[in-house]
């Protein structure tokens, strides 16, 4: 995957944090992922990609981080439903904002949310999977981009 494509997703996530008035996110060095060993934290929001590009984009992070983000957007309740909704909305925002660069043929699905660390997340065959590690406050999270 081109460097520019990775930057699109980093910019989308940075924009998300900026808009909710949160501190800057720091981004680690992206690395290639073995499709058989997907990265996953407590909650994962997965967006399917179709159209000109095919594959998926997902965002995964710990429960404590989502709880903090929920409070940042004014939510007083932190239930599992809220946590799943939040991680799905972050994934939706990251993938949706990428259309500014990739155009409307970068078609995105509604989010699918996985709770807990699954045995595996099926990543599409013939894709290069790039993990973009991110850190916000003390919380480690990641964007994983698996596109043909």
């Amino acid at each position: 995957m081109e460097k520019e494509s990775i930057e699109v997703f980093i910019n989308s996530l940075s924009n998300f944090y900026r808009q909710i008035g949160a501190a800057e996110v720091s981004v680690g060095v992206p690395y290639l992922l073995d499709a058989n060993q997907p990265v996953a934290s407590d909650f994962t929001g997965i967006i399917g990609i179709s159209g000109k590009r095919r594959g998926c984009v997902y965002f995964t992070c710990p429960k404590a981080m989502l709880s903090y983000l929920l409070m940042s957007v004014g939510e007083s309740e932190v239930t599992t439903e809220h946590l799943c909704d939040m991680v799905g909305e972050i994934a939706n925002t990251i993938a949706g904002n990428a259309r500014k660069e990739f155009g409307s043929e970068f078609m995105i699905s509604v989010p699918v949310v996985v709770q807990g660390v699954p045995e595996n997340i099926h990543l599409p065959d013939n894709t290069r999977c790039v993990v973009i590690p991110t850190k916000w406050k003390s919380y480690q999270s990641a964007i994983v981009v698996a596109l043909e």
Partner: peptide
């Protein structure tokens, strides 16, 4: 919406919307 490309905004407006606010928003 998080869909931030111009074509989508134009399509939504042509179908009857009057405004477009991109997510994330303050």
């Amino acid at each position: 919406s998080a869909l931030s490309d111009k074509a989508t905004a134009i399509q939504a407006l042509s179908r009857g919307a009057q405004g477009f606010l991109c997510k994330p928003f303050t």
